[in-house]
């Protein structure tokens, strides 16, 4: 996938703005099993993340919003899930804030308040959200060790923002991938807050 990414980067202009760079040569939706397009984004602490940095890892990409009731409701449960994989070096959690007009400082303030341990990257211009066809927060994509999309959708099966669901789709997907098994439910519709896109 990295060769394709590099080719795509060479053929298309990378959009560089506010520490964000994403390839913009993906016109089609990324479906389960498809190679996940690369990105380069800066987190709230100033660290630059590229998907290629996590080659051979399992990467959880979670589109995030500090204002969304669904996000606020899921924060403690997501944090607990992240903690449960603390010793698992092959699992990487990355939040992505794609909302227009939201500063890194504001995101970081919420991140600290909510006890979020994983980095939150700023998707300037919601370009990566567009590429991934993300519409709500939380909306989660899991990239397998081969760089392909293994899961897309909801965090769990909660029926209201604050109440933890009985089935955690992300955990189930991660456990399957760590066991080199197929994800049983790779696509679950996510409900949540709409992404504030640039005009």
């Amino acid at each position: 996938m990295w060769a394709m990414l590099l080719m795509g980067m060479a053929m298309t202009a990378l959009v560089l703005s506010g520490g964000v760079a994403v390839a913009d040569d993906h016109d089609e939706k990324v479906e389960i099993g498809d190679e996940v397009p690369g990105f380069e984004m800066t987190d709230t602490e100033g660290n630059v993340h590229k998907l290629e940095d996590y080659e051979d890892k399992i990467v959880v990409l979670s589109f995030y919003s500090q204002h969304c009731p669904w996000i606020i409701g899921h924060d403690p449960h997501m944090n607990a899930l992240v903690a449960s994989y603390e010793d698992e070096e092959d699992v990487i959690f990355l939040g992505i804030d794609p909302h227009a007009g939201r500063s890194l400082e504001a995101i970081e303030a919420h991140r600290e308040e909510a006890g979020v341990k994983y980095p939150i990257l700023k998707d300037e211009g919601n370009e990566y959200a567009d590429i991934m066809d993300a519409h709500v927060t939380p909306e989660i994509y899991i990239v397998d060790r081969d760089g392909n999309l293994a899961y897309h959708g909801a965090f769990d099966n909660r029926t209201s923002p604050p109440e933890e669901g009985e089935v955690n789709y992300v955990k189930n997907a991660l456990d399957a991938l760590l066991a080199d098994e197929e994800v049983a439910e790779p696509r679950i519709q996510a409900w949540g807050c709409g992404i504030v896109r640039e005009q």
Binding site: S65, Q66, H67, C68, H99, G101, R102, S103, A106, T137, C193, G194, I195, V196, R197, Q199
Partner: peptide, 9 residues
């Protein structure tokens, strides 16, 4: 364009 909330600031 969207249902999400405006920035807190």
């Amino acid at each position: 364009v969207t249902i999400e909330e405006a920035p807190a600031e």
